[in-house]
């Protein structure tokens, strides 16, 4: 095969692969435009969701957007300590003679990364939500209801907080992978220098984590992007109700779960499809932006020895 024919074989696939992202952006933008024209800023700012058959209804994405942000923030806040502790556990606590254990732990995290999200969702709906609803939420409400976040009476386990907890479980392995990779690149001399100061493990880890700070931020951002985009698992536990997520113990909605539930039938309602696509466009922008920012932080990780 000549050089020219080889290029003719491999260039079109490369072009097709590159074009998908562009096509996605253009199609989402194109279908969003009617909604943006009709509702303007109300699309983002209005909490109303009133479908009308045969006429444009009133649609605002405020509640699902807030739900997406709140659940993803909860997920990151809960996942960070778990992920960082796991990094310290595998890199600093386990290695001393327990090589097998370390490999086993890392394999478990790997399996968590690969487990189908729908399995998390099924478990979340059938096990986690009832469990949290019957125990933690009742306790939170009875003892901490003076905090607005816990002020509402929990009636079900399917809440924005459950979505956050389930997402935290799901994104911990991703954050772990990002932070661990960077943590392992810290040159030995720094580790030795820190240890030679007579630091305790706690003090030592604090120094190391300080060095890995950009990677930690990157992990948080990438985890946030994942959490914001996750669909089926969230749809099974978030409650799918148009409630402002100002109280965490109530059901709510996220953009992705709204799309999952409504998109297939949206064509029956004028403009609803366009509104949902514009929600998708926002998810796309969140996903890409958190990834770009994450990569920018990762680039800052340069350990010069």
């Amino acid at each position: 095969m000549s050089e020219a024919r080889f290029k003719l074989l491999v260039a079109p696939p490369a072009i097709v692969s590159s074009a998908i992202l562009v096509l996605l952006f253009i199609v989402l933008l194109y279908y969003s435009l009617p909604a943006i024209r009709e509702y303007g800023l109300g699309l983002l700012a209005s909490p109303t969701w009133k479908p009308v058959e045969g006429a444009p209804g009133e649609y605002g994405l405020l509640i699902p957007l807030a739900g997406t942000l709140v659940s993803a923030v909860i997920a990151v806040l809960l996942a960070m300590p778990l992920a960082l502790a796991s990094v310290v556990f595998t890199e600093e606590i386990l290695p001393r003679g327990l090589h097998r254990w370390r490999e086993a732990f890392v394999s478990m995290i790997d399996v968590m990364t690969g487990l189908p999200t729908i399995v998390y969702g099924l478990w979340g709906a059938a096990v986690l939500a009832p469990l949290l609803g019957d125990t933690l939420y009742k306790w939170l409400h009875s003892s901490l209801s003076f905090i607005p976040l816990f002020s509402c009476q929990p009636t079900t386990g399917n809440t924005i907080l459950t979505a956050g907890v389930l997402l935290a479980i799901m994104i911990t392995p991703f954050i772990y992978a990002v932070v661990r990779e960077s943590y392992r690149q810290i040159p030995r001399t720094y580790k030795e220098a820190a240890l030679s100061l007579g630091t305790t493990r706690y003090e030592y880890v604090r120094i190391m984590m300080g060095m890995a700070k950009p990677a930690i931020l990157a992990g948080a951002l990438i985890g946030f992007g994942r959490a914001a985009g996750e669909t089926v698992a969230v749809a099974l536990v978030v409650g799918n109700t148009f409630n402002m997520p100002s109280c965490l113990l109530a059901p709510s909605y996220t953009v992705s779960s709204l799309i999952a539930n409504q998109f297939a039938n949206a064509q029956l309602y004028p403009l609803m499809l366009n509104v949902l696509v514009s929600g998708g466009l926002i998810l796309l922008l969140i996903g890409i932006a958190s990834n770009i920012l994450g990569i920018m932080y990762l680039r800052r990780v340069r350990y010069v020895a």
Binding site: A14, L24, G229, E230
Partner: peptide, 26 residues
């Protein structure tokens, strides 16, 4: 093109998969 292809395909990793479904639907 190689650089574009690398960045654009790896960015697909961060696109929520529900949007892929949306795209193919449309």
């Amino acid at each position: 093109l190689a650089r574009v292809a690398r960045v654009f395909t790896s960015s697909l990793l961060e696109v929520p998969t529900v949007l892929i479904g949306m795209l193919v639907f449309l």
